[in-house]
Design a protein around this nucleic acid. Structure first.
Lengths: 202, 202
DNA sequence: TGTACATCAGTGAACGCGCGTTCACTGATGTAC
DNA sequence: TGTACATCAGTGAACGCGCGTTCACTGATGTAC
């Protein structure tokens, strides 16, 4: 990590790394340009050679997080095995668990991705492919008859809301599962119900 | 609002009111003791006669919010009319809409209630009866045969997650409903599916 | 292969800011006699 | 009904802080000839 020369060489990434460490535990409000620069062993002014402002750095961090979520969802879905009958439920559970895991790994980064840390009315358009992954997955399942095609409209909303909601509640400590119950258990339960609500009906 | 005498008389409430205004649009990070005091027409030191710290003020604001949510849920549920066949779905929709409405009315207060604005690892135990309202409602519905009693375990989690998830996504601008679609439409859809997943099965 | 030079990623000092919190204080209020 | 006094909700000044951002600058790098 020590820098041998005047030039850092990889400062942009170093700042992202430090920024993620700050934000990862403490959330977006923990990020300071000065501290990230300090962590990278560089003057705070140097950071402005790579990011226009604190907010630009936060936005870049959110993008990193969304990309990670996208990859996690892709992987989770690709890893699903199951009999034809169970495939929808197994897939949604995998999605939910991946969502939860990404969030738990870096709670503050998750809040950076979804929170409104900029000006109250500013839209923070972090475009992400994670949502599209889910939509594709649902389309596939419907095409294979594992989900009711008539219920496809808004199904993405239902799944995403449930996964996001439970995850947020867990992250913010607003859900009491009692002893011996892991968040993943709760996610399985929730996604199981969601799957059953989308199952093909006679 | 003008104060005639040396003593304010109702400073605690005035601070809560100002605090809510600050937090209501901007979220917890917008709250400053100084600004709340300024708004109440009082020195910042005076605020400390009523709240131990900035964090104590935030906690009090969160409590105000939770109480409001509880009342909104009670009201919403009490106002549900419907034929026996539809009662579960109608009730859950009412719950979801009330949840959404409370959040949209004061987005920043909602984030104050649920966010982690204190030290990263600190638990913020704002105990609230809103959750209990939901549990009671579900029990009632099951007792009347409107929900499948065998699915009652965890049903509260499912409902709360879905409502909370969609609400959070809407609040953070992370859901694209397209034109002509209101958040309430999305909530009806989501809660409709949730209700169907809990419906009595043959 | 050597040299002049443009580029640009760094430095470090400084700006102005608003904040949370504390302090010794003051004066309005209400109670005991 | 009047008075002495304890209480305590206010004041205003001050503390130390870390922050975002800008500035004129310097020196390493790489390219044109």
């Amino acid at each position: 990590m020590a820098r041998s020369s005047f030039h850092h060489g990889d400062l942009r990434n170093a700042l992202l790394r430090e920024g993620e460490a700050l934000v990862g535990d403490g959330g977006p409000e923990r990020l300071s340009v000065r501290e990230a620069a300090r962590g990278a062993g560089v003057s705070s002014a140097a950071a402005y050679k790579h990011f226009d402002s604190r907010e630009a750095l936060l936005r870049a961090l959110a993008e990193v997080g969304f990309e990670r979520l996208r990859l996690a969802l892709e992987e989770a879905v690709a890893g699903v095995r199951g009999r034809r009958r169970d495939i929808a439920e197994a897939t949604l559970r995998a999605v939910g668990r991946a969502y939860l895991q990404v969030a738990l790994e870096r709670p503050g980064l998750f809040r950076t991705m979804f929170g409104r840390w900029s000006a109250p009315d500013a839209v923070v358009p972090v475009d992400h492919g994670a949502y599209e992954v889910l939509q594709r997955v649902l389309d596939d399942l419907a095409a294979r008859g594992a989900l009711d095609a008539r219920l496809l409209e808004g199904a993405d909303l239902v799944v995403w809301s449930a996964a996001h909601g439970l995850t947020s509640l867990v992250l913010d400590g607003r859900v009491d599962l009692g002893p011996d119950r892991e968040p993943a258990w709760a996610m399985d339960l929730v996604m199981g119900r969601v799957a059953s609500s989308l199952a093909p009906r006679p």
